[in-house]
Computed example of a mutant assay.
Amino acid sequence: MPDLSKMKKPDVKLVFLGDMNVGKTSLLHRYMERKFKDTISTVGGAFFLKQWGPYNISIWDTAGREQFHGLGSMYCRGAAAIILTYDVTNWQSLVELEERFLSLTDTANHDCIYALVGNKADLTDSKAHLCQDSDGLPEDRTECEEGRTETHVLSASPTPPASPTSLSDMLLHKQVAREDAVALYGRILRYKGLDEKSSLPADKMCFETSAKTGYNVDVLFETLFDLAVPAILRKRQENQASPTVDLEDWRQVSGKRGKSSCC
């Protein structure tokens, strides 16, 4: 169990942004609790704390509903990474990222990392039905098969279990291609005034995931955590170069000096 004293102050902040029902909360639960569960729409925001080696990383889950839109810029303030999430079966969810959520990132750090995440890949891609853990090995097969059964109603006749080949006939139409996400990533860099040649490449920062099966979820989080470490180190170096002054100690020292200099 992590030392609670070390978990009190995060070293860096990651923030999820995206429309409602794209699966932001489910992605967090899949990574933090290693399981999928149905969730209700987030109200305002939710906070998770993850210990990554010697570092403490806070992960903020924000509401996608229009009435909570104004809170987004507050949650993004000081963020080291923004995860812009959409639903691969819903084109409008990608459009909303650019039209409604991108401007909220103006309060993030100047060197903030941006990732585009297309969730619900299990609905459109047969290979996303393969559950994987952080080592790239299959997870609990029972959980995977339960997830499939809930998503797809299979024939009642005594046929073999669904395979990726047979599942292909039951997959939904994919409305957002990877090329669409890559194009949006380029526009995000231009909006932020970043040089595409010196920035992280789109093929590294555009992900397709499934919170239901765990597909690419560990890859997403661990990639971002690794990329955030340099920001943590820079922050610590800046704090060492410019140490914070304790006002209470300063007042005590100032008061003693004032008394001793009195005639």
Rank of each mutant, 00 (worst) to 15 (best):
M7V: 06
D11C: 01
D19G: 09
N21K: 11
N21F: 06
S26W: 06
L27N: 05
Y31A: 02
M32R: 07
K35V: 02
K35H: 14
K35I: 01
K37D: 07
D38N: 12
D38Y: 11
S41I: 05
S41H: 08
L49W: 00
K50I: 02
Q51F: 04
P54F: 01
Y55N: 12
N56I: 13
N56L: 08
I57D: 03
T62D: 05
A63M: 04
G64N: 08
E66C: 06
G72H: 03
S73I: 11
S73V: 11
M74V: 15
C76S: 13
C76N: 08
A79K: 05
A81L: 06
I83G: 04
L84A: 09
V88G: 01
N90T: 02
N90A: 08
S93Q: 04
L94R: 07
E96S: 15
L102W: 04
S103K: 12
L104M: 14
Y114S: 07
Y114P: 05
K120S: 02
K127H: 12
H129T: 10
Q132P: 00
D133N: 15
D135H: 14
G136M: 07
L137Y: 12
L137K: 15
L137I: 08
E139Y: 09
E145G: 00
T149S: 09
T151H: 10
L154S: 10
L154C: 10
P158R: 10
T159E: 15
A162K: 06
S163E: 08
S166I: 02
S168C: 10
D169P: 00
D169T: 13
L172S: 14
H173A: 11
Q175P: 00
R178P: 00
E179S: 14
D180K: 11
V182M: 13
V182Q: 11
A183M: 05
A183K: 09
G186Y: 07
R190I: 05
Y191I: 00
Y191S: 05
G193K: 04
G193M: 08
L194F: 14
L194C: 13
S199P: 03
T213L: 09
Y215E: 05
Y215P: 06
Y215T: 07
V219W: 10
L220N: 06
E222A: 00
L224E: 01
A228L: 01
V229R: 10
I232P: 07
L233R: 14
L233S: 02
R234Q: 12
N239C: 03
S242Y: 15
W250G: 00
V253E: 11
S254M: 09
G255D: 14
R257E: 07
